[in-house]
């Protein structure tokens, strides 16, 4: 039996292929990026140690503060997604002819990929696009609006796109949650005189608590990492007056457009700290949630 053998290579051999890849492409880069963040580095020439200079520059960089602000604003997609997806889940959670078809249709944006979908949106929002065409036809606007050239709209449009792409996915998660809630709870609420909407308020929402926590965690972490939507909608420029620049977009610009790998690494460290704080807050919320349930 296994226990007799005091030392065996077997488990390490099983782990080896995966660990080699993870060490080279994940663990080493994490260590390297910490070091780079303290250097002046342009990738083509070797890094030069500059201490905390990159961080000091960041503190005095108005675009970086703008990026931080935009990334925090972007977190508003999380409550929007939760609200919309729960409503959608409640609507599709019934046995009606054709309901599976609708669930499928709602899921299509999830699998289509943000690049193709982003380009489609960009074309629709073009000054000569279908959105302006529809709005002018129904008389809501007289002249076409330059949706993508207006700094005030950039971030909002990207957030709408993120929400549109994600809502079918989160709907499915909430739907699975709803189907786990015992029917008796709804019957009891009905006996207590609740109407259809009150039933959902007192039974569905508390019953969906684990899913709400889960969706909060993953959608807020995803919101902090947004890049593709911004890249496509602003044509890789970040929007007029940096209106669409988020932390990850700014990291990308510093590293791969301006060749400031050291500065970009410092931004990466800030992003890491924000992500860690978020994860801790989210995990705390999750723990207190389960305690309250027990």
């Amino acid at each position: 039996m296994n226990k007799i053998r005091s030392f065996s290579l077997t488990p390490y051999l099983f782990l080896m292929p995966a660990l080699i890849i993870i060490i080279v492409f994940l663990l080493y880069p994490i260590g390297a990026v910490v070091y780079y963040s303290f250097t002046d580095y342009s990738i083509t020439t070797p890094p030069v140690w500059v201490g905390i200079e990159n961080y000091q520059k960041l503190l005095n960089d108005p675009i970086f503060w703008k990026a931080l602000q935009n990334s925090f604003v972007y977190l508003l997609v999380t409550p929007a997604l939760i609200f919309i997806s729960i409503l959608m889940a409640i609507v599709v959670n019934r046995k009606l002819p054709g309901i599976t078809l609708f669930r499928t249709l709602f899921f299509i944006p999830v699998i289509s990929g943000s690049i193709a979908v982003g380009i489609a949106w960009r074309m629709m929002l073009d000054t000569n696009g279908i959105i302006n065409s529809i709005l002018m036809t129904i008389g809501m606007i007289k002249d076409p609006i330059q949706w993508l050239a207006e700094p005030a709209y950039t971030l909002g449009i990207a957030m709408l796109l993120t929400t549109w792409m994600g809502m079918g996915y989160y709907m499915m998660i909430f739907l699975a949650g709803l189907q786990n809630i015992p029917e008796e709870l709804y019957e009891a609420a009905e006996l207590d005189g609740c109407n259809a909407w009150q039933k959902h308020w007192v039974v569905s929402i508390p019953g969906l608590r684990p899913q709400i926590t889960f969706v909060t965690v993953i959608s807020s972490l995803a919101a902090l990492q947004v890049f593709n939507e911004i890249y496509i909608l602003t044509g890789g420029l970040g929007g007029i007056l940096n209106s669409g620049v988020t932390v990850v977009f700014y990291l990308w610009r510093q590293a791969f457009r301006l060749n400031h790998a050291g500065m970009a690494s410092a931004i990466a460290m800030v992003l890491l700290v924000i992500t860690l704080l978020f994860s801790i807050i989210n995990i705390r919320a999750m723990e207190s949630g389960t305690e309250a349930d027990a």
Binding site: I30, A32, L276
Partner: peptide, 27 residues
């Protein structure tokens, strides 16, 4: 080393993928 490996992997899970792109590019 099982727990050490497991918890190291778990810890990397919160690291944003974009963070590794700079050293990966150099590699």
């Amino acid at each position: 080393g099982r727990d050490a490996i497991f918890y190291t992997l778990l810890a990397t899970y919160v690291v944003p993928p974009v963070l590794t792109s700079i050293p990966s590019f150099v590699l």
